[in-house]
């Protein structure tokens, strides 16, 4: 039955759909090797020069470093906040549980531009806009919810009697968590961390509000760059970023299975 449904018309449609979705990415890859000095199609020749220039572009390299540091910090802190919150939400019953659950998921429902403005209003008086700290705090607002979600999912699907067994065998609540719960939910936690990093690394809208001269992230640098110039260096940079994203996705897939995490 299903094999009939997967006959050639379906296959053609699915293939076309994928091509349509992937076309822009393929185009970017092609353009990044083009000899023309503005991004246009079809390509006129083949060169590595845009990659070479990219490697010498101080702003991009600086931005990359800022984004990597911020992303790592965000991933770490999002885990340190998100995992305990997920444990509280799934393992304990308390008066404001529902409210807390809503609170931790709400940033995902607010448009990024509104959130960016709100964060600016909060962070500016604290004088931490334009710093690593400010960026990290801003990004935590949108990444903690993801960590809470992936971790909660793992906590809800794991066999709870394993925790109870550990307790009867003499493990204190804390050791039960570190020796049994954490190893069993590790794939979900790791996935949450990687997603947090990627979101932080990719985030432009909120960052635009809170970046400053000392700390400007890569997406913001790109944004500024394309405002004035349109050479294929951007395409080359995009290819590098795509490669990094794919690498991370492979890590998640290996650790937990993408489908499970994105459910």
């Amino acid at each position: 039955m299903t094999s009939k449904l997967k006959g050639w018309p379906t296959r053609v449609v699915v293939t076309l759909l994928y091509l349509f979705l992937l076309a822009p990415i393929l185009m970017v890859v092609v353009i990044s090797f083009d000899t023309q000095s503005t991004m246009s199609f079809p390509p006129q020749g083949f060169t590595f020069q845009w990659y070479e220039r990219l490697a010498q572009n101080a702003e991009f390299i600086q931005g990359f470093q800022v984004s990597a540091v911020v992303g790592a910090g965000v991933a770490l802190l999002a885990l340190l906040i998100g995992v305990p919150v997920a444990v509280a939400l799934t393992r304990h019953d308390f008066r404001f549980r529902e409210a807390m659950s809503g609170f931790f998921l709400s940033p995902l429902m607010v448009p990024a531009i509104v959130l960016g403005l709100a964060l600016l209003l909060v962070l500016a008086p604290l004088k931490i806009t334009g710093t690593y700290g400010g960026l990290i705090v801003a990004h935590l607002a949108i990444t903690v919810p993801y960590v809470v979600r992936t971790t909660s999912m793992s906590l809800m699907t794991m066999n709870r009697s394993c925790e109870e067994a550990a307790r009867t065998l003499g493990a204190s609540p804390w050791r039960t968590f570190t020796r049994v719960t954490l190893p069993l939910i590790a794939p979900g936690v790791l996935a949450g961390g990687v997603i947090a990093f990627l979101i932080s690394f990719d985030e432009a809208v909120i960052s635009l509000f809170v970046v400053g001269p000392q700390a400007t992230t890569l997406p913001v640098e790109i944004f500024h760059y394309v405002e004035s110039r349109t050479d294929p260096q951007i395409a080359a940079l995009s290819v590098v970023l795509i490669a990094i994203s794919v690498l991370f996705m492979v890590i998640i897939e290996r650790a937990a299975g993408l489908k499970k995490v994105l459910r």
Binding site: S161, E164, A165, R167
Partner: peptide, 18 residues
């Protein structure tokens, strides 16, 4: 629980898969 020193065998065994 962890100070009671009782041995409990669960219906689903609850062995540690890791």
């Amino acid at each position: 629980v962890h100070q009671r020193g009782m041995g409990l065998v669960f219906q689903n065994y609850a062995l540690f898969p890791h």
